[in-house]
Amino acid sequence: MNIGDILMLLISLIVFPGLIFISASSLFTEWFIRKVTARIQNRMGPSYTGPFGILQPFIDFIKLIGVKELKLQRYSSTMLAGLGLLMAIGALVSSLLLLPISIVRIQAPYDVIVLIYLTVVWTLIGLIIAALSYPNPFTIAGVSRMLALATFVEPAWVVALLVPFIATSKLYNCSYSVLCTSRYTLSILGINPLYILPYILGIIAILVASQAKLMYKPFDIPEAEQELISGHITEFSGPVLALYNLAHDIETTVIALIVVYIYLGGPYPYPHLSVPGALLLIIKYFIIVTIITIIRSVFGRFRIDDAIRSIIKYSLTISIIALILSWIM
């Protein structure tokens, strides 16, 4: 790589669509989720900081970083917690390089494995490291619930994610490439309309799995306030809590973008760099976020056994059926 390539890579990682852009987008997404949730529950939501309260998530982040006290324990390690959360954020930001939105686009056969590795493995490991940096009975219980949930959620999410990859690799020889799949994922419906069935099943499965992966209601069991105070984040405070909130918001944004590109084709049928394409991409993104928010707002919390049964029934089973259908068509 020459100096120009290295510079473009750094811009992609730090500026767009890297840390700065995805952080700003995730804070805006948090505002949108809080606003929609409030309207559904007949509340105002963020209203005073900035126009329509749009700057409230940013102010909350700054307040946690610079004003709120960092709580310490005798056996805790705030440095290890910060490193775990930075690891999760770094993995999520790096996964953007595989999507068409990136200036520097990394493409290779079977690079979906890298996408799964970053968004599933390293993100989860980073969150677990951060939580276990604060030994506490409530933290341990929250982490155990998180792992129990992840045992079923992550396979369901991965299987549902693979449905468009199988279809495009069969018809367009995409070789399980994220970039190629996102370009042709919707065009295959014009070639073989029968693929609409596994696609519908797959998007239902991946939305349910995403809801649980993000620990939104009804799958927020690892941080059930009535039972575990706040579960795996009970001891988080100050800058550590700010990093955790940011990591969670970034994960929400990245997962929504992945669903938009892999299932909905991103800006398709418009070119990626066109104004109509950008507007369509934004509309699709907020449709996915709105669906997640509505589910979060209208459901109560499941028990861990109910949550696992629901994931097996509505996500894992449906995604396996969609995977088989996409394979045999």
Rank of each mutant, 00 (worst) to 15 (best):
G126V: 08
P137Y: 05
Y261D: 10
D306Y: 12
I54L: 14
L118R: 00
P135N: 03
V104D: 02
T78G: 14
Y216S: 07
L55F: 13
L279F: 15
K213A: 09
L92Y: 09
I191L: 15
I33Q: 12
I11R: 05
A141Q: 12
M8T: 05
K68F: 15
Y176H: 07
K213R: 07
V121K: 07
S230N: 14
H248Y: 15
S315I: 10
S319P: 08
T151K: 10
M215E: 14
I320N: 02
A24M: 14
I103D: 01
I282C: 05
Y134V: 02
T234K: 02
V93T: 08
I262D: 01
I54N: 01
A91N: 04
E227T: 12
I282V: 14
F28M: 14
V121W: 13
I22V: 14
I89W: 05
P239L: 11
S12Q: 03
Y268L: 09
L246T: 02
A131S: 15
G126D: 04
P198F: 08
M8A: 08
G266P: 11
G50C: 09
I258M: 12
F61P: 00
R303K: 13
H272K: 10
V240Q: 00
W122A: 01
I11G: 01
I221W: 01
D306Q: 15
I6K: 07
I191R: 09
I129M: 11
R145K: 10
Y117L: 15
S47F: 09
G82A: 12
S95W: 02
G265Q: 08
L186T: 13
L325Y: 05
I200T: 11
H232R: 09
L161M: 13
T119Y: 02
R309S: 14
P267K: 03
L257Q: 11
L80W: 09
T37N: 14
L97D: 00
W31D: 00
A131K: 00
L264H: 04
A24Y: 11
I255E: 00
L280K: 02
I65Q: 04
Y117Q: 10
I311A: 03
F138V: 04
L85G: 02
V275Y: 08
I250T: 01
L280G: 05
P271E: 11
K68Y: 15
T29H: 00
I262L: 12
S94P: 07
